[in-house]
Design a binder for these strands. Structure first.
Lengths: 346, 346
DNA sequence: TATTAGCACTCGATTTGGGTGAGTGCTAAT
DNA sequence: ATTAGCACTCACCCAAATCGAGTGCTAATA
């Protein structure tokens, strides 16, 4: 049932059919294909070949007297072995580079990447927020709030600022908090956040009896502060509304479910996670993704790297019937550009 | 042309008509209205009254042989003087209170408010981010980055953390930056950000010749850091997808334009701004808003206060044909709850 | 004078049915 | 193995027919 069972002609035919269908969205008939195709075969012969292709599950006819459209399997074979990737125009690349690269702020950079992905593809662009295995703590700062609460500011990975509010046992003065911060900064600066947590646990045992109460409090407090929020990742999405223009999305109910999934984030994140440890562009066609809401969509995704380490995934989401030959290199180059730019401004 | 020109009966009729139309979305005919209405009037009489109402522009017939539907003017009269507000169930209020009030973090609180607005109304919920006139600086911190850039962390309004990256003339050491921060903290802490900017400008003149270069740099740097980003406000939106269920939104193109407006934010913000200086719930019906994308929507909005000062607006966006009698009190109470909760956790 | 019953009429919505055309599968000829 | 020929299928389009909810107007009524 694999491509090897198809002779050259059948493959070429399938390729033409998919290309044609992607181009204008109409079921493709034998006559059209005969005219279109470079090789000269009569419609009748093509019909025979198409019957075979249908039997093998690569194409199917929406109804008796219509042409054929590719099935998921058909698309899969197409992208795996038939597709000829369109090399990107240099000018397109440099344009992307300029528009994405002009960002100082990493957050804005990511947002701009997703926006541009959506713009150049006319589909939805998604960029997973970077998630480093190692989160090194640079500095920590405590500020007292009312009601025994403390505002904690963490600077991690050299330049990212996080803040959270923790509840404390008693009221601390600004001076005390300063002391605590100093202690922790000295103890932890430059180390991985997870390791820091471990260090603190050990420290705690050592300290309990010997050291002064304040340091014990500090550790307690840091414990609270460093407990990572249950943050299973997040992403930036742009151009969802582009998807409303595709007639294959005409079904409002389905579209709504898709948008709800975007808001829920969980499913999309799981899917993107699958590309996190893959190398290069990955493609999920229709129901291949395993998520029902995506069964009429394809996702083209690629990991992006900083320092040679994969830290995130970006991609586009659009109808199964998309111009893979253009989208794939676009996603690819955007991932590389994003990685490179992140490296630069690091 | 005002309500005063309408006798009691006509008003009651209009009220019934609007209520009925809001309930099931079909043009309302004289027969239905005659059966529905408490008063016993024959369809023929009702037809006469309806003809008057139509002439005055309160209702109109989509076509000759259909019933009538309210016009914008009709809705306006309805919400202004005919509507009987449904008093909220105590249990609904306390449920809202619980769900919204259990948030420590102001950001999460706002998000939760918009989410709950959307849930209880089955429409889109929107909460403008608080915008205080006065932004008092609590602390500033500088951290050196590579390439002559500096990460600035500002803590304002006691507990909100902002960060930005600025470009400097030369490379500063951590120690130098610490000195600069100390100087600025001492000079500025507790003051309004705008005033600080002004102070710095004056300081600059004084300093230029006399004080050491570092302080001059500090002021230069602070200048850069305190220049507020062009931030015309922002909002949190939840439940957009709810809008996809209303058949009056069936037009995909229009829906897309609406969603695009949500993303663009500008128009919606301008509209919400109008409620910023109003007292209590405001209602914009259809094209009254002045924004074309909203011409089939109504917006019910209310300002919310902290310390008696209005700092933001929240509301819902839905089809013109919405249950105003339920939505209005819901928006009202949510605004009050949000204000109260913000006050508490301040 | 205000209300109502009666009636002809309007017009959107739905159904019906024929015609068209793109496409098919099968068969027989090449 | 390929192709021409042919009967057949079926979505799509259009026009006509039907239906029914609702109207405005007029004349009768309280």
């Amino acid at each position: 049932m694999s491509a090897t069972e198809l002779n050259e002609r059948a493959q070429l035919l399938l390729k033409n059919l998919v290309e044609r269908y992607i181009r204008d969205g109409q079921p493709v008939g034998s006559r059209t294909l005969s005219r279109e195709s470079t090789m000269e075969i009569s419609p009748a012969t093509i019909r025979n070949v198409m019957a075979d292709l249908e039997e093998l599950g690569f194409i199917h006819a929406p109804h008796t007297s219509a042409g054929r459209i590719p099935t998921i399997r058909g698309y899969r074979l197409f992208v795996d072995s038939l597709l000829t990737i369109k090399p990107l125009n240099k000018s397109v690349i440099s344009a992307l580079q300029q528009q994405i690269g002009c960002n100082e702020d990493p957050d804005k950079l990511l947002a701009s990447a997703s926006r541009h992905l959506s713009e150049v593809t006319s589909m939805a662009g998604v960029v997973m927020l970077p998630r480093r295995e190692q989160v090194s703590l640079r500095q920590v700062e405590f500020l007292p709030l009312s009601h025994n609460r403390v505002l904690v500011i963490l600077v991690v990975n050299e330049r990212e600022v996080q803040n959270r509010i923790i509840q404390t046992q008693r009221n601390y003065s600004a001076a005390e908090l300063q002391q605590i911060a100093n202690y922790l900064n000295q103890l932890c600066a430059g180390h991985d956040l997870r390791r820091v947590r471990q260090t603190l646990l050990n420290e705690m045992d050592d300290t309990r009896s010997s050291m002064n109460q304040l340091m014990a409090d500090a550790i307690q407090m840091a414990q609270q502060a460093f407990t990572e929020e249950e943050q299973n990742g997040d992403y930036l999405l742009a151009g969802q509304t582009n998807l409303m223009s595709y007639e294959e999305m005409g079904n409002l109910d389905k579209l709504r479910k898709l948008f709800d999934a975007f808001n829920r984030k969980r499913d999309i994140l799981r899917l993107l996670d699958q590309s996190l440890h893959a190398d290069g562009v990955q493609i999920f066609i229709g129901e291949e993704s395993g998520y029902e809401v995506l069964d009429e969509c394809s996702v083209v995704a690629s990991p992006y790297k900083v320092d040679g380490e994969v830290i995130g995934v970006l991609g586009v989401i659009g109808p199964t019937r998309m111009a893979y030959d253009r989208v794939i290199p676009l996603v690819d180059v955007t991932a590389q550009l994003l990685g490179a730019t992140l490296n630069q401004i690091k």
